[in-house]
Amino acid sequence: MKKITIIATLAGIACHVFITPVSASDTQIIYKFYCAQCHGLTGKGDGPNVTKDFPVSPRNFTDAAEMNKLSDADMKNVILDGGPSASKSPMMPPWGKTLTGEEADGLVKHLRTLCKCEGKKS
C-alpha cells in the first residue's frame, strides 16, 4: 500500500514537472535570449543579425495580417523544426534540440501577444 502511494506521488511530481506550462515571464526571457537576435526585442524583425545583406527578412511578429496566416501548430512546428520544415528559409533555425515543447508553446503564446492576433485555426 505504502509503495503504491509513493509511486503515485512520484508519478504526480513527474507529471507536474512535465506538464506545467512555462510562465509568461520565463517566456519573455527565452524570447529575448534566443529569438531577438533576429526577430528583434519587440518582434519587428529587426534584430542585430538583420543587416542589409541578410537573405530573407525574419518574420515581423507585430504584423497581424501575416501572422494570421499561421496557426499555433504551424508556429510550434517551425520553431522546433526550422524554416525548411515549412518550406521557409533555413535562416530560421531549428530549436527542437535547444528548447522543450512546453517552451515552444510558451513562445507561440508570446508571439500571439505581439501580433495581437489569433491566427488561423487548424
Binding site: 537576435q37 535562416m91 533555425p93
Partner: peptide, 8 residues
C-alpha cells in the same frame, strides 16, 4: 546554405 550559421 543548409544551416543558419551565417545568419549569426
Amino acid at each position: 546554405k543548409k544551416m543558419p550559421c551565417s545568419g549569426c
